[in-house]
Design a protein around this nucleic acid. Structure first.
Lengths: 202, 202
DNA sequence: AGCGAATATGACAAAGTGTCATATAGGGAG
DNA sequence: CTCCCTATATGACACTTTGTCATATTCGCT
């Protein structure tokens, strides 16, 4: 988390800094990003950066968390609109991510093409925050489980993991192979159908 | 790929270098690894490293490819032993990976916990190398497709992607949550069953 | 022995990171 | 208004790492 000093900053300066950071993380992935570039672009002295953030990672994950919060809001509205249908929700959610505007797209691209376990874990909070989460009822409680082929909570958890990882892999695929939106949607629909109906004959 | 100079090296020196590199990549993930450590540990001058490899990544992916070749051999023997049953093959393969000996385990751990798209792509070559691949018949030709719920090659490709990404995610889970082998196997079995039978009721 | 090509070597420039001593600003008490 | 304490700002600096390059050495061949 950013330090208190960051949150005490005048709103304008905060925005300038966030903008500079996002620009750098859109240019290159986290581990190639340079604090030097960020401070140059934000026109603040190098020492100041360390007043506000622990390090590069700190700034990156702050931006990522912001983004995840946006996702979370999307997701909640989608699952309600589709009356608990998790598959349709994911299809719409997938579409939303891959049709982001250009500005966010480079940022997302760098995130997904360099997604590792730590980043994925953060991203998964879109779906449910397993820690303190008083304000929202868990996402999972909005899912219509009657239509799902599961016997218990453990199976439900496994199913969600499967769905999330398949979706993420599809997003990564879209970015890495530079698929058009139509191609990407077609693939994802096939995948969701395979998942729904089962991979095995009988 | 390493440079020709590397392959011209006396076998002993090659081994010493590979050992030093593996040691460093077992200690920390790729992007934190230091060439300085590798050359110190291999007792070669810094300049020599650059005679043999382009950079850190080059050395890392060389080791990774070696590892992938081992996987590939495992996989071919497993799919034959299970007479084309891809699910049973994957279950055994998963077990093989997570029960690796200590020496390789730190290396694998660093690979999986920091797996990104590039590394994943390399890893997927365990299953089929979509480029030149004269010596082996494609892995996919050994799979018994009659038992699979697929209509065409495109669906088959999607299915394989699903299976591989779910398996990888399970390996990552095992490492990140430090699951025991038994817990990990139980989860993975549940996941494979869900995939086989379908996530949707009907 | 002699010569050209391949390889080895370590000093070095360049770039980046995080820290720290010092300077400055803010705000409450007297 | 002034004093003083705390919070913030600043950029020089020490340190680390990387990749290169001029120079030295070795190898293979005639």
């Amino acid at each position: 988390m950013p330090k208190i000093t960051f949150f005490n900053l005048p709103h304008e300066k905060q925005k300038k800094l966030v903008h500079a950071a996002r620009q750098e993380f859109s240019r290159v992935p986290l581990y190639q990003a340079s604090i030097t570039n960020i401070v140059k672009s934000a026109r603040i002295p190098r020492g100041s950066f360390y007043q506000y953030f622990e390090d590069k990672e700190d700034a990156f994950f702050y931006l990522l968390k912001e983004r995840v919060q946006v996702n979370k809001n999307y997701l909640f509205s989608l699952i309600k609109r589709h009356e608990g249908d998790i598959f349709q929700t994911l299809i719409d959610f997938y579409k939303l991510i891959i049709t982001e505007e250009e500005e966010n797209l480079s940022f997302l691209r760098n995130i997904f093409l360099n997604m590792n376990h730590q980043i994925e874990t953060e991203f998964e909070r879109s779906f449910s925050n397993h820690e303190a989460n008083e304000e929202f009822s868990e996402f999972s409680s909005l899912i219509d489980k009657d239509k799902l082929n599961i016997k218990n909570d453990e199976e439900f958890a496994c199913m969600m993991k499967i769905l999330i990882s398949v979706m993420m892999r599809s997003v990564i695929d879209k970015f890495s192979r530079d698929l058009t939106e139509d191609e990407a949607m077609r693939h994802f629909n096939i995948e969701m159908n395979l998942l729904k109906n089962g991979l095995s004959m009988n």
